[in-house]
Amino acid sequence: MLTIAGRIFSSRLIVGTGKFPSSALMRAAIEASGAEMVTVALRRVDLNDPGDDLMTMLDRHQYVFLPNTSGARNADEAVRLARLARAAGAGEWLKLEVTPDPRTLLPDPVETLKATEVLVKEGFIVLPYMNADPILAQHLQEAGAAAVMPLGSLIGTNQGLLTRFQLEIIIAQARVPVVVDAGLGAPSHAAQAMEMGADAVLINTAIAVSGDPVRMAQAFAAAVKAGRDAFEAGLGVSGPVAAASSPQAGLDFLR
């Protein structure tokens, strides 16, 4: 079971709420995904409006709400937004996003680390979105991040696991759950991340902009489960030399 900050999740798929054609379709897709944690951009919701579409469309008892600071350019902005969100009742969970470049939306490593240090001290459960940098992952864990969320490729690009080698190091070294976030465009990408040993994946664009978000959500759920099962079962070693299924190693003489 996936455990983040002491909370147990039976689904290893986390989903986002942006880019959907309607909030009704968003809800249907999220239900179909079986996800238990959803991320919501604070810039999109009006926390002071009890009737806000995004906030009322999903049952807050059914899902762990992971508000995100999408749009923040530096640590100060992210911290300010997080504090206001918590004061308005958004809870302690936070997906920290500090993305100074609005084109690539790449996370700023320096500001993300700064904001993590501040927010952890203030009692937030911080899940930082980060580039797939193993050393940064170490620093963020030392600062008290509840999980790390390295990217597979640029957000929204559907390019899959372009950062594979760094992700492998991050996963091997991790003391907290590793959630591969951003760039996973097909269920096979999600399955690959899970086979590598990622603890969970976060999917938004690939589901939201697909022709049928509900079926795509089901496809991702199945892929995440398959990938995890394969990881737990133990994948065979792959290599360039052919190996027979019934080995005749020629060592029968040994006593």
């Binding site: 054609p21 309607s22 810039r43 009006d46 902005e77 937004l81």
Partner: peptide
């Protein structure tokens, strides 16, 4: 906008970003 299968977005920013 809804009839065409798109979501009309009225809020996509927050004044709290700016000090």
């Amino acid at each position: 906008i809804r009839q065409h299968g798109f979501d009309p977005v009225r809020k996509d920013w927050d004044s709290s970003f700016q000090q």
